[in-house]
Every structure is written in structure tokens, then in C-alpha cells.
Design a protein around this nucleic acid. Structure first.
Lengths: 224, 224
DNA sequence: AGATGATTGTATCATTTTGAAAGAAATCTA
DNA sequence: TAGATTTCTTTCAAAATGATACAATCATCT
């Protein structure tokens, strides 16, 4: 198994390389984006550990380049912050997993192994929050193993809420997010009420807890 | 029996060569595409074990070159991932079998032996999903032993759906897949409706379950 | 060339989704 | 508590999407 670690902190990188090598992985290290590009173009890796904060740019660039080549399978994104929005963006861009610093090396190993297992068992990209499981690849939502059928807007809304969990999203922000392009042109944002209500209803109908909280006068929040 | 192993991981390669040699096969090793090309042009092999991820390119290149020479018989593709789409592509390109890493050497041996048996007994490449059985060599589709007669596009569509089972494929993606090259130039994708409908009809007429699900506003999915 | 069948485009119909509107309910403010 | 504001809920028409039927084109075979 060949692993590429893209990480600028030398000390951490060395630790990881050492640890994974001990576990019989063939682990290489790239310290920045330029370096990583060279290695990626030259070799095929079974797994790429990608730190997002790099000295010469945003690791997301690499991820997007890989996406164009349809080679995101096997990427684990490492980020300094537990940011649901970034996490979702990463996974939607095709990353296989997301890991927050600081982490135990054992945890990293577990993820890598899980990834390899998943690769062999035809896995997907999963977002989990409470009893909800969203599969970004299959575009399905499940609540304790039962499938929840959502419309496109409801699905986007749910992702947006969960992606900003515990943060309040204003009606206006949600409206813009859901309407794609002509955002500014929107005057009446009231249709958000309908989508919120319909989504709540479908969630409750499947026995899901009521995590969509209304903050009067401000907006909505996905509250765990 | 002469076998060529195309594999970049030296340690694994050595194990395989050693194991197969013990079983009285004459096994040679090529560590990359360039190396493999040389050997293939020079000798005739009864069986080629081809790892897809190679340092100097995609193993699929080799497979396609072999196909042009009509020498794919005896190729077993080895891949790091159990990827239905790649598996189908490999088998369609003429490979005889597909093996996912990691595997036991005994398993490999069994495959090689099965391959040799097949060579003598004129076997086929089978893809199975639910009660459907597709023979990629004969290009036939059967539902519980009854033959399903499909047009070329219907056959391609079915393979594409099954190759991405449980994943949603957009109308656009399907259209591009079915029309080959001029992908982007396509404006009207509506002909996909017709093929979907016709395929569904033929499947149902043979008593096959309705696995082609419509995801409104998103696409279609082969759902088991 | 003519016949046959496959493929694609067009037209029409059916269904689902969406957003707007409006009154009811809840919440806030003074 | 009254009145203002915000949110909820329902209803409905318009828009988007998909299914179906059919016609036109294209490819293939004899």
C-alpha cells in the first residue's frame, strides 16, 4: 500500500511517516503543493493524506485537480479545524474521509485501514449527524437505516443546515443558498418557511429527533 | 505454462513469482509498463497478471494494446479496488478475470488454474446483479436463464447502470456515456428517456424486478 | 436500392416540485 | 394586554421534469 502524505509541519510529518511505515505501508512525504503535484503526476497512490493548510496554497486545489482526473478515491483530508462546511465540501469533492487535528496516530491508522476496507467493499462518502446518515455519492439520506426521500431543495437544505451545525442560518442566507445563481434578485424569502416545514415533517415522520431549531427573528439552527 | 506478472510492488511480486514457480508455472516479472511491453513483444505468455496501478502509467494501456493484437485471452487484471465500473471495463477490454487486492496466493492460483481450464473449455466473462446475468464476451443478457434481447444502446445503458449500482447517474452523464465522443456538444439529452423506458419495459416483460429507479430531478439509479 | 430495425428528436401528457399568497399562530415589545 | 412583528401552515398555480407515443433520420443487411 502506497501512501502520500501532504503536510507542511515537518515534525508531525515525520511521525506519521514513521508510524505508517512501521505498519508496513509505503509512505512518502510531500511538504507543499508543488512537491505534491510532482509526486502525484509521477506515481499512483492508494491513499493520499492531504492537509488543507499548506505554505504555497490551499490543499483544496490539489483535491480539485484530483477530482478532474477522477482520482479522489483514497484521499483523506486533514484539517486544523472541525469545520462541517469544509468537511462536506471535501467529501463532495470526492475525498473519502476527513480528519481533524490534532489526532492520535492510531486514529489515523484506523481511518486508513477503514478506507482500504471500504475501497474493497464498494463504499461511499458518508456524512453523519445524530441518527441521520447522508451518502453524498448515492445521494441518499437514511435515518436509522430507513431511507428518507427528499426533493432536491430539501436535500440541499438539510446538507446546508448540517454543514453549519450549531450555527444560526438566516432565512435570507438559506434562500440564497437554495436558489443558486439569481440570488440577489430574490426579494421574497418566504418560500424558505415551506421547505423548512416540509423537511421537518419528513424527518419527524421517520422518527428523527427535531434538530431544526427556530431562533426567532434570526434564523434556523441545526442543533445537536 | 508461461506467466507474466506485471506488478510494481517488488515484495508482492516476489511472493507471487515464488509461489507460482513452486506450482510449476514459469513465471516472469515486469515491474512497469515499459518493461512489460518489452517482454510481451518478445515472448508469448499463456497468462498475464496485470496490476492496473503502475509507476509509469495505467495498466489499462497494456490491456488495450493487447486488445488491438487480439491477445487479451489469458489476462487477469489485478486492481486495488473492487470497482464494478473498472471491472466491467477490464473484462470488456478482453481480460479474462478480475482480482481485487489484497488476495490470498491460493486464490490467485485458483484463478489461474480456472483460466487455463476455461481456455480449453471456451468459457465466458460474467457479470451478475440480482437475477440478471450479463455475458460480456457473448454480449448476451439473461434473466433467470431466459435470454433478453437488447439493442446496442440498451445493452450499454444496462451495463452503465449496473456498473454504478446504487449510485445516481444523471441524464447528462448517461447521455454522454451513450454517445461516446462528442460529449459536451450534446444539448438535448432527452433521448435518454426513450432508452430508459425501452430497457425498463424489456426487463419487466421478462419478469425482472424493477431495479431502475428514477430520482426526480437528479437522475436514475440501479437499486438493489 | 429497398427493407428492416435502431436511434434520436419532437410533441404531448402526466407527475412532482416549487414558490407565492394568505390567514393562523406564536413571539416579542412597550 | 394590545399591537406589531415574525413564523407556521395550508393551499394552489406555475414551472420543471419525466413518461410515452410517434415521426424522422440513420445504419445495416440482403
Amino acid at each position: 500500500m502506497k501512501i502520500l502524505l501532504i503536510e507542511d509541519e515537518a515534525e508531525l510529518a515525520e511521525d506519521i511517516v514513521h508510524y505508517l511505515s512501521d505498519q508496513d505501508f509505503l509512505c512518502e512525504w510531500a511538504k507543499d503543493i508543488g512537491n505534491a503535484r510532482g509526486k502525484i503526476s509521477q506515481y499512483d497512490y492508494d491513499c493520499i493524506l492531504l492537509d488543507l493548510s499548506l505554505p504555497d496554497g490551499d490543499g483544496m486545489e490539489i483535491l480539485n485537480e484530483l477530482k478532474k482526473l477522477d482520482k479522489t478515491e483514497g484521499v483523506i483530508v486533514i484539517s486544523a479545524k472541525e469545520n462541517m462546511a469544509v468537511k462536506i465540501e471535501s467529501l463532495r469533492s470526492g475525498a473519502d474521509d476527513y480528519l481533524t487535528k490534532p489526532f492520535h496516530l492510531a486514529e489515523l491508522l484506523a481511518r486508513v485501514q477503514a478506507l482500504i476496507r471500504r475501497k474493497n467493499f464498494n463504499g461511499s462518502n458518508l456524512i453523519r449527524s445524530a441518527e441521520i446518515e447522508i451518502d453524498l455519492l448515492k445521494k441518499t439520506v437514511a435515518i436509522s437505516d430507513r431511507t428518507l426521500i427528499l426533493t432536491k431543495k430539501e436535500y440541499e437544505l438539510l446538507l446546508y443546515l448540517i454543514g453549519n451545525q450549531n450555527r444560526v442560518l438566516s432565512k435570507g442566507a438559506i434562500a440564497e443558498h437554495l436558489s443558486g445563481d439569481q440570488a440577489d434578485l430574490l426579494i421574497n424569502h418566504d418560500f424558505v418557511y415551506a421547505h423548512i416545514k416540509n423537511l421537518k415533517r419528513k424527518l419527524i415522520d421517520l422518527g428523527c429527533g427535531d434538530y431544526i431549531k427556530t431562533i426567532y427573528g434570526i434564523g434556523y439552527r441545526w442543533q445537536l
